[in-house]
Computed example of a mutant assay.
Amino acid sequence: MLTPLDIQNKEFKKTLRGYDAKAVDLFLDEVIEDYEKVYKENIELKDKVNLFSDQIRHYNTLEETLKNTLIVAQTTAEEVISAARAKSQNITDEAEINGDKIIELAKEKVRDVKAEYEYLRKEMFSFKTRYQSFIEAQLITLNNFHREIEEKSIVNKSTKEDIDKNIDEEVSEEELQYLHENKKLDNLGA
């Protein structure tokens, strides 16, 4: 590309029938001036184009970075969501398993308590029956003993009084007390 200096330094050969040198020089001066303006404008526009190209490259790089960032963010979000779902599923599954274990343990405890209750109820019934039989037998024995005493007491009342008198006379008070205590003990054992 020609520069304004190239145009200015250009020299033409002179010929006989050539153009008017002054007119050519004036015209060339005008061309140089206009060309210089266009040339400067062209340089400025090239600089602007280069600047805009740099900015476009920068924005394209930024756009690519943002796209990659968005893709990474989306992938990360999907992974986080997937991990959260898996974790929540694990927690739910574990809770259900623990719940089932707790329910099974509770059922087992209920069975144990029921079995113990039945065992204690049978033992209580057995104890009640034995104790009732024992008390009834003791009542029968006591009634028989009381009846025998009353029968003997009527028959032997006079004999007993005589024996007691004879004993009282022959036995000291300590011995008498000892005999009465032993007699009470004998009555209790019968």
Rank of each mutant, 00 (worst) to 15 (best):
L5Y: 13
K14F: 13
D54C: 04
T76M: 02
S53W: 10
A23N: 05
A190C: 12
A95R: 10
V38L: 15
F27I: 09
N90I: 08
K114S: 14
E78A: 09
K114Y: 12
L28D: 02
I97V: 10
E41T: 10
I32S: 00
E148S: 07
T65F: 15
I102M: 12
K160R: 13
V24G: 04
K128S: 08
E108H: 09
D47I: 01
Q138I: 06
E169T: 05
N182K: 14
E30I: 06
I167Q: 03
G189Q: 13
N68A: 10
V113D: 06
D93N: 12
K40V: 09
G189E: 15
K184Y: 08
F52V: 06
F127Y: 15
T69H: 10
R111D: 14
N182Y: 09
G18R: 00
Q89M: 14
S172R: 03
E169W: 02
N9G: 07
F12R: 02
I7K: 01
E64M: 03
L185H: 09
K13N: 03
N98K: 14
E64R: 10
V80S: 09
Y35Q: 00
T92P: 04
L188E: 13
I56Y: 04
K165S: 04
A23C: 03
N9C: 05
E41S: 12
T15F: 13
K114Q: 11
D162V: 07
L66P: 02
Q8A: 11
E64P: 05
R130E: 11
K13F: 02
N156D: 02
R147E: 08
